[in-house]
Structure formats: C-alpha cells, structure tokens
Amino acid sequence: MTGEPLLQVRGLHTYIPTSRGVVRAVDGVDLDIGRGQALGVVGESGSGKSVMARAVMGLLPAHARSTGQVLFDGVDLLTLGRRQREQVWGRRIAMIFQDPGRSLNPVVRIERQLTEGMRRHLGLSRTSAHESALRLLTEVGVPDPERRLRNYPHELSGGMRQRVMIAMALTCGPELLIADEPTTALDVTIQRQVLDLLRRVQTSHGTALMLISHDLAVVAGRTDRVSVMYAGRLAEVGATREVFRAPQHRYTQALLGATPTVDHRRHTPLNLIPGAMASPVDPPPGCRFSPRCEFTVPGCTRPGPDLVRVGDDHEVACLNPVSVAPGGELVGR
C-alpha cells in the first residue's frame, strides 16, 4: 500500500437502541482501503457488515449512534455537517445496494435517476448528462440505452437493473464504491456477470471497492484484501489470498468448511457451524464466537481478544488459531 489509505475506519461502534435493548451492531471495527484497492467484507447475516457500510454512508436511522472515526481522504465523515457530507456522497463515495428491485425508485424514469447526481454534483446540462448516461449504460452492458433511459425500473430485468445501479454509482467518477451484497437478490446465472462487471469497472476506473458479502466465493477472486466480521467485530483481516489459503480464525475456518465446493464428495453432509449468531444486545464476554467454537481455551471468555499479526498482511483475533494451513485453495464462483 502506498501513502495514506483512502478510507480508514477507526474504532467504529454503531449502537442502535431498540425495544429489546441496545443493539451493538458494530462494536469496534477498523478497516483500511487504499486507492484503487478492493476490500471484501465477509460475515454471515447479523454480523454487522451492512450496518457498518450504512454507517460509513450516513444512511442509518436518526436514533442510531455511531462513534469512532470514518476517515475518508483524511476527513472524518462522522463529524461533517449534512451539506458537506452531501458533497462526498454520490460524488466521491457511491453505494450499490442489495436488491436493485428496491433501490431504484419505481415511479421515476431511469434517465432522471441516472442523471440527477451528475447534474447536481458536476453541474452538467441536460444534454451532456444525457450523453454521459448513454455512455455509462453502454459501458455496463445495457443494450439499447436510449430506450432504457425512457423506461421505468419495472420494465427492466433484475440483472439490467443492477447494471443500471452500477452505472448510477459511476456517474460522478467516485473514488470509492461500496457494494452491499450486490448480487444476493439476483439469479445465480446473472450473479457472476454482475460481479465480473463490478470488478472490471473497478479496475478500469481505478476506483476503490468495498465488496460486502455473506458468500466467501464472491469475495475470493475479486478482492485484494478481506475482513471477516462476526457479531459486530473483526475476526480476521488480511490479504484475500492469504486468508483463504491459510485461515487462522476458527470462525473463518468453519465458514470455509461450510462452503460447498466442486470437489465436495456427493451425498456427504456439509460442515455446518453449530449454534446461532451471538445476541447483538447481550453479546457473550470475550470472543463472541466462543459459544459456538470447538477449540476454546480458558482465556476465550475473558475480554478481548485483539487482532494479532500472524503474517505479512494477515491479522487474527483468536487465542487458539489454526496453525496448520489446510490444503487446497477456494475456487471463486
């Protein structure tokens, strides 16, 4: 990594008061994304990865409380005023949501949804915004873009809608793209196309990417680094290749073990992780994975553990890490 990272998240805590108590959705997370770099954020449902992304984008409901620092190009987004943040959102950081059927406004034509950001941030005229929109749609592989601009979202297929969302995210040439489960709502056959498109535009535009997924295979071949989250905390961080080759945290290992692969022997049960996700209201003391872990040692229930460096670009928060690397490499889908 050269120079200052583009995005530095430091000690981010996001607490959301609910009727059942305060949900500690994100409880002390650090992240770095360098310019043009791709970071995967992986974890199962409820691990806090989406809340973390929304906290970075300031999209959480008003009663949610975020503390810590979200430094974007050296400026803490959490302390910026609303007008200043509006200058960053859409223009320098853009977000792609999970379900394109819900993240495009059903009563607004594609053209307005694509061009409103450009016209506001870049001050483009109607015609140049229109041309720019055409160019972007062509780039993301939407056929007959002139007609698509006049369409409403329901007139497009799911894959087309997500392509439109990607084009929309690119409109102002952002430095960082946050993609929150961008393919979860799509057909399996379309997922790969959209992921490859995302990776392609990321490299061709030199944009940094935060790719959030519950699916390790999505992240595997498409990111430089990966952060594994569990119950609002980081379990393991490192170079994607390294983490997949030699996972050190027991949770990462279990997660990899639960992923079906081509080599998986037929009619043998998948390795599931026993138990359920730790309660975000009343998390277990110490390592939050410890109640589900087969390899606990006495210290696991004491406060901590912190991330410890175990490799060149590899840190793990585990008192009894996997020291022997399992063979084989995960094949990206």
């Binding site: 984008m57 943040r85 509006e86 960053v88 959102w89 379900d99 819900r102 950001g117």
Partner: peptide, 17 residues
Amino acid sequence: REDYVAAARAKGMPRGY
C-alpha cells in the same frame, strides 16, 4: 425506509429533493 430513498441520499441528493 425504502432502499430507493437510501439510494437517492447515497447519491448526495439534498433532503428536500
């Protein structure tokens, strides 16, 4: 609460808009 409102805000569009 809809995602498309979050998406519009994520584009940096002002609240009134």
